[in-house]
Write a protein that binds this DNA or RNA. Structure first.
Lengths: 168, 168
DNA sequence: TATTGTTATACTCTATAACTATA
DNA sequence: TATAGTTATAGAGTATAACAATA
């Protein structure tokens, strides 16, 4: 999924004079529009660090869970192992992440941040939080909390784990 | 962006025992997780019609705005013209959309639904609404309205049009 | 036999740019 | 000159499958 980093025509959530019909009432459509705006702003703000949303997630997850195996990272991020390899390769080339040999399992690596990676993540996190505040600035603090909680509940149901457990 | 229609490992919004750190507090992360779940469920539910979210949006927009030009559709959906061509081609091959010659401008087409497309859109819309209700079933009706309103406000600010207008 | 990380390969989505036929 | 639709091409992202090393 490549998205324009700096679109010639900025994204317009609602084009004047156009009927959106049933789309207006769909939560899915609202989420997708919000996601487009968020993704766009994220890419713009983090371009100097060459950090994309998946890269940022990987960086934080590795930082918070030192010694993580690549296969575990893949599962957490819901990507194939080969996708995790690409992600870790990119973060390694940026000098942020390294693969440590595992003492207990010589097939596996223990993922960890480098010193440079730790420093970078601090600056990157500040930028990401500024971005997040910027996008949610039209909501009160209380609303932001409510919104996160509602989205979490939505994602939680999701049918996924539940449906699978119930033999979907 | 290709996503698994039926993942071997269902998407887990939160893997037990894993620290998500700063990600937990980010609206962007919450929106992305919700979007993953929505997309997954949509694809699963609409697979029999070979309808993806972008195709559904295009179908509804064409239905609600008869005579639309392909370039206008591209702008509304925030894709390149070439992308709109692919979309309209797919919907044409499904027999849902046709390109009518424009009388006023012989370069342009007027997009319209076929009779089959109108019938299909009715059934598809019912399925999409069932999907949307399914995902948002953990929220009260009032919360769903609130959630949509908040997402709309978020997307509305967005910096996009505003930032562009202010000479970003 | 199963798992870890890797690589090769392919597919989807979507962008840019060039082209044609009109305007 | 500019615009509408199209096509060719390329790139990002990510999946599947096969592989060697290790469990």
């Amino acid at each position: 999924m490549k998205r324009k980093a700096t679109p010639a025509e900025p994204f317009q959530p609602h084009v004047p004079g156009i009927e959106y019909g049933i789309l207006e009432g769909l939560l899915g459509f609202a989420v997708r529009r919000a996601q487009l705006v968020l993704y766009d702003d994220f890419m713009r703000a983090l371009a100097p660090w060459q950090i994309t949303p998946p890269r940022f997630s990987a960086l934080v997850i590795i930082s918070e869970n030192p010694g993580l195996k690549l296969t575990e990272l893949a599962k957490i991020l819901a990507v194939a192992r080969s996708g995790a390899v690409v992600l870790v390769d990119a973060l390694s080339e940026l000098g942020y992440v390294l693969r440590r040999d595992s003492v207990s399992d010589r097939r596996a690596f223990q993922l960890a941040l480098t010193a440079k990676g730790r420093r970078a993540l601090q600056a990157i996190s500040r930028e990401v939080q500024a971005h997040d505040r910027r996008i949610s600035s039209m909501l009160s603090k209380q609303e932001q909390v409510q919104l996160r909680a509602m989205l979490r509940r939505m994602a939680g149901v999701s049918g996924r784990a539940a449906a699978r457990a119930s033999g979907e």
